Computed example of a mutant assay.
Amino acid sequence: MSKPKKPVIEYRHYSLPIDFPVLLLSGERWKISDIKSEHLHFHNHMEIGICYSDGGVMEIKGENVPFRAGDVTFLPRYLPHTTYSSPNKASRWAYLFFSPEELFQQVIKTPHTNMEPNLRAIQASRCVLHKDQYPKVYTLATSIVEEIQHQSPFYRESAYGLLMSLYIELLRIHANDENGVNREQELQSRQPDLVISPALEFITKNYMLPVTIDELAELCHLSTTHFRRKFHEIMGTTPLDFLNSTRVEEACKRLKSTDASVLSISEQVGFRSISSFNRCFARLMVESPKAWRTGAHMEAQSAKASILAFTGWV
């Protein structure tokens, strides 16, 4: 008897605007087809989705969770999933992408607060929340979308406050799930859903530190050779190239939002020499850091391609 195929997992990278790091994808373009993708995918930022029409199924952690109009979905970064509509339907969505650390770190200062839910403890069924059961979540999510779409005076301040309230509500929901995880469940889910997620989390939070491939492999409990192969299989690039692209993307933000020198920024994001920073920056951004800083870039051009259209969308 042949072994079942392992699901292919795709990485989808989204760049956030510099001046207000929240990305909204909405409108008629964002309709999900009824054809199930052969691939799971995950994102580099937290995703909040709002289903406006029809229904379908979201596959999360090996579970098929139904959704319908009025549902709000809440997916931490690095959580593989896929979504497809009911037969002969094309559900319409709006999506918000953001980084809790970037937005709320200076405001939410409770000691030892986890800014994202524990992927091992998260329940697939609680990633899809219906407005009848969670009316506050639905009202907050739709209000954020309306603020960003209409852009009335002070819309950013309003959207920020609403997003913080929404995020706290979602953290409370998942905190209850995490507290309810027993020892048996913990043992069953010791391995994360995405085997390289510990390395991705480490790079996301510690890109500015010296790091070796051996250390990243150890975090994932893999041999260095297996880790390199698995990382490239999932991410489509090497661990070192992903680390450097993360550093360059952060450098782009600092070049636009601060007056720090190019040398200082290169050191802040983890490059050991200005020459290696300039070389890596030019390779990814197709111009020097100085030229990029003085150019008419309204937001951070990604050091990794932003994916706005892909399999499964109408």
Rank of each mutant, 00 (worst) to 15 (best):
A251D: 05
R183M: 13
I213T: 15
K290V: 15
L79A: 05
V211L: 09
A159V: 08
E146G: 02
V128W: 02
T311V: 15
H13F: 13
C51T: 14
R120F: 03
Y167K: 00
I265A: 01
M58R: 14
N44L: 05
G270W: 00
P117M: 02
S15N: 15
E157Y: 13
M208W: 12
S53F: 04
F97P: 01
M1I: 15
E47S: 09
S189K: 15
V314C: 14
L171M: 13
H81W: 04
A175D: 11
Q105I: 10
L96E: 09
N176V: 06
E186T: 13
V181Y: 00
S245Q: 05
R283H: 09
S275T: 10
G312F: 07
L240I: 14
S257Y: 13
R29E: 14
H45R: 07
H41C: 01
E59H: 03
E116M: 08
S189Q: 15
S223I: 03
Y160E: 02
D177Y: 00
K136A: 10
H112Y: 15
N176L: 11
H39D: 07
E250H: 07
T238H: 08
E28V: 02
L240W: 11
A69G: 08
R283W: 03
R279S: 13
T258N: 04
P117S: 04
L222F: 03
N179S: 10
I148S: 10
L129E: 04
R156D: 05
I148T: 07
Y207M: 04
L96Y: 10
T73M: 13
I144E: 05
C220Y: 00
S306W: 03
H232Y: 12
S273A: 05
P66R: 05
G236W: 01
E102I: 03
A296F: 11
S158G: 03
L103M: 09
F281Y: 01
R283D: 13
V145P: 03
Q301P: 09
R190A: 14
L209I: 06
L75T: 02
S273I: 04
Q191L: 11
L75M: 11
K136N: 14
P100N: 01
A141D: 03
F231H: 00
E101G: 01
S261P: 08
H174Q: 05
Y11R: 03
A94W: 04
K6D: 12
R293Q: 11
F67K: 02
S306A: 09
H226L: 13
I48V: 15
H13Q: 07
Y52K: 08
Q149D: 08
T237I: 06
I108H: 04
I213R: 13
D193V: 15
G62E: 07
I203N: 04
P153F: 06
E250S: 07
G270Q: 00
S37H: 00
P135R: 11
L24Q: 10
